[in-house]
Amino acid sequence: CDSVKGLEEMRAQYIKAVSKIKCDMLCYIRESKERAAEMIKTEVLRERQETARKMRRYYLTC
């Protein structure tokens, strides 16, 4: 009976550690994706503004 209790405690301890690791990993992956998306968004915006500037200059000189 005591050994069963010990096993159960070990099991609980193991599950707790694994779920903490899972939680941290999910968080890490989500943040990586968000950071990448944000970076791409910023760059596309910057590129779009740059193109608009070039177009304006082009039509002004013609």
Binding site: G6, Q13, Y14, K16, A17, D24, Y28
Partner: peptide, 28 residues
């Protein structure tokens, strides 16, 4: 840098599990 930080966190979790399971083993 972020991956270094997450490695530290994961190590902390496994260290905690080692300590706690050690305690359980001693107790039983």
């Amino acid at each position: 840098l972020r991956s270094q930080r997450i490695m530290e966190r994961i190590n902390a979790h496994t260290e905690e599990m080692k300590r706690e399971s050690e305690k359980i083993v001693r107790q039983f």
